[in-house]
Amino acid sequence: MLLLALDTATPAVTVALHDGSRALAAAGEVDARRHGELLLPAVDRVLTEAGHKLAEVTDIVVGVGPGPYTGLRVGLVTATTFGAALGVPVHGLCSLDGIAHASGLTEPFVVATDARRKEVYWARYAARPSPDLPPARLTEPAVDRPAEIADEVAGVPAVGAGALLYDTVFTGVRRDGPEHQSAAALAELAARKLAAGEELLPPRPLYLRRPDAQVPANYKVVTPQ
């Protein structure tokens, strides 16, 4: 197995190559405005560093969000186009799960990323016996204003940029936890799930919000009244 993982659902543009037992190389940059420019060069760097060609990749894993849409789509369209060109399967994983896996937390915890517009994308995770085991998500990923979920997350260990940003609500925030996505963690999680015969998600975006679009009000009269 040679697994290429990428994720653009958070400000990180992150890419990793994984052979089923370990990450062979990883690259990325944190720049929320340049996902489109940075992703392909990062893929190229990871492959070069690991001494592999894209044609040798057997599986592609992509974070399906939730995440700010414009950046999120860069990863998804890149992954699905690679899949089509190479004829290999493209697996989706919830981006929050990747951050959860990287957290190393064993007690119940939450992951929250920045959804912009004063909201967070977030989900709750169950306790796990060992930080090596895949995290078990208890809730569907959601988008909310921090104040609206304050009762649910107060004092609960929390990781991610959303928790760091709203630390008066996420009072259990772990400052040493992962802030953004890491494709190495995402690849690791996918490798475990695939090895266990688990079905992953289709590579389709979790937007969680409808597009901002207003049906125009009635035609505005131009003649002076």
Partner: peptide, 8 residues
């Protein structure tokens, strides 16, 4: 993004 991935 699609064109880059396809060409690459």
């Amino acid at each position: 993004s699609a064109a880059k991935a396809y060409a690459y």
